[in-house]
């Protein structure tokens, strides 16, 4: 990992087309601004990992022929 130290309002440029700026520092929170091309996706890492894990879990669904349909699952469990 490349480690740089920045002050408020200073910027880092990556690959000539991504800019990361320290906008504000309040206590233990840093407000970070990012300028990047539309094609670059940017997310808070822990949120992204959570979505990833949930999608992986969803993809493990067993084929419907082995199970009853989703609507039946709901009906069965609502009684």
């Amino acid at each position: 990992m490349l480690v740089l130290t920045r002050k408020k309002d200073q910027t880092i440029v990556i690959n000539n087309d991504i800019e990361i700026t320290v906008l504000d520092i309040q206590g233990d929170q840093v407000r970070i601004g990012i300028n990047a091309p539309r094609s670059v996706s940017i997310h808070r890492k822990e949120v992204f990992l959570e979505i990833q894990r949930e999608n992986e879990e969803a993809a493990r669904i067993k084929p419907e022929t082995d199970k009853i349909s989703l609507d039946e699952i709901i009906k069965m469990n609502m009684k």
Binding site: V47, I51, E54, E57, A58, L70, I73, M76
Partner: peptide
């Protein structure tokens, strides 16, 4: 929303955040 159907069917859930 993407739906997760775990082995325990009563815990069927959907992803509202994404």
């Amino acid at each position: 929303s993407i739906v997760v159907v775990p082995d325990d069917l009563t815990r069927i859930s959907m992803n509202l955040k994404a």
